[in-house]
Each structure stands twice: as structure tokens, then as C-alpha cells.
């Protein structure tokens, strides 16, 4: 909030109109009236991806986020037609690691696959045929060691910063 106010005030050199506008905005900000729009908490429910098993995925997290569907697509053809059942990019391996210890599944409201796909509004076809359950019972790991990754602040993408445009003073 303070940063916002500073950002705005740093640009406040100019006409009395814009100065008045900025002053009004600053007052609003200080009252917290604009907080629902600019606050840290998004209005959109964000997926909270908790990884219960294993410390490391088969590829880097950023690669998996972007390309997991391609890995599974290639692997499925090799498995069905050629009988190649390596674990690295197999759907079974995904599920065995990422299933929730409570439900044993990657589906459900907090399920690893479903929570993200609901957020991204991308329909999954996998589980019309494939089992969404882990092959063997997976136990709850020590909470200290389980990794919780929030998608609210992706590491690799640019951090989103609000741009405030002051009318009448366009660059």
C-alpha cells in the first residue's frame, strides 16, 4: 500500500487537476477502500498445489507446468503401441506421486490435477478411462518435508506490478 502511494506521489509533478486526483486516490488508499482491487489476495480462488510425495519431479517444475501434457501425450503412444512402459513420463507415475494421502486421488477439490485444471478451466480427459487413484496406498509425509507451492507468485514469470495511469499526463 505504501509502495503504491509512493509510486503515485513520485509522479505528482504537474497540473493542479492531477495533483488533486492523486491526493484523492491517496486518501482512498489510506482508508483501504481500494484494497479489494489491489490487495495481495486475489478475488479468483488460486490453486494451492501441495506435493506430498517425493522431493523432486521428473523434470523441473517450470518445464512440467508448461509441458506436462506433451510428455504424457508422447508417452501414451509409446506405451499403447510399442509396450514401452518407462516410468519417467507415465501418467501412473504422476498419480502415484501426486495423489492426496487423504483421498488417494489426484481428483477432488484439492486434488493435484483437478484444483489446477479447474482454475485454468481446462478439461481433462485422462480420468474418463484411467484410474485417478495411486496404485499403492501412499502415506502422509512429515508436513515439514512436504513441499507446498503456491501458484500465486510463480518464480520464473515477471512479478506483476500494478501500473497506475494518470489521465491527462500520458507519457
Amino acid at each position: 500500500m505504501k509502495k503504491m502511494a509512493a509510486l503515485i506521489s513520485s509522479r505528482t509533478v504537474g497540473t493542479p487537476v492531477s495533483a488533486a486526483f492523486v491526493a484523492a486516490l491517496t486518501v482512498l488508499l489510506s482508508l483501504g477502500l481500494l484494497s479489494p482491487v489491489l490487495a495481495e489476495d486475489s478475488r479468483v480462488p488460486m490453486p494451492n498445489v501441495t506435493i506430498h510425495n517425493g522431493d523432486k519431479c521428473v523434470e523441473d517444475t517450470e518445464v512440467m507446468r508448461r509441458s506436462h501434457m506433451e510428455f504424457i501425450l508422447h508417452q501414451r503412444d509409446r506405451t499403447v503401441h510399442e509396450g514401452i512402459r518407462t516410468k519417467q513420463h507415465s501418467l501412473k507415475n504422476c498419480i502415484n506421486c501426486h495423489a492426496d494421502p487423504q483421498t488417494q486421488s489426484v481428483l477432488g477439490e484439492d486434488g493435484f490435477c483437478q484444483s489446477c485444471h479447474v482454475y485454468a478451466s481446462v478439461k481433462m480427459d485422462c480420468f474418463g478411462c484411467h484410474s485417478s487413484k495411486a496404485e499403492e496406498q501412499i502415506g502422509q509425509r512429515d508436513p515439514e518435508s512436504s513441499m507446498t507451492r503456491s501458484l500465486q507468485r510463480p518464480q520464473s514469470t515477471r512479478v506483476w506490478e500494478p501500473r497506475v495511469r494518470i489521465h491527462g499526463r500520458d507519457q
Binding site: 509396450g83 501412473k92 474418463g128 478411462c129 484411467h130 484410474s131 487413484k133 496404485e135
Partner: peptide
């Protein structure tokens, strides 16, 4: 019909044809 609780051995789902896989 929709299939739930599939076996890990044989993925199977509505709208497809299936037969003996010789336990592939």
C-alpha cells in the same frame, strides 16, 4: 456407460470399444 474405479491394469471408459488384451 461412465466407468468409475477402473483397474490400474486396464484403462477403460465410455464411448470406446474394448476386448481381451491378452493381459498385455
Amino acid at each position: 456407460e461412465d466407468v468409475t474405479d477402473q483397474s490400474h491394469n486396464a484403462p477403460r471408459g465410455k464411448g470406446t470399444v474394448e476386448s481381451c488384451t491378452l493381459c498385455v
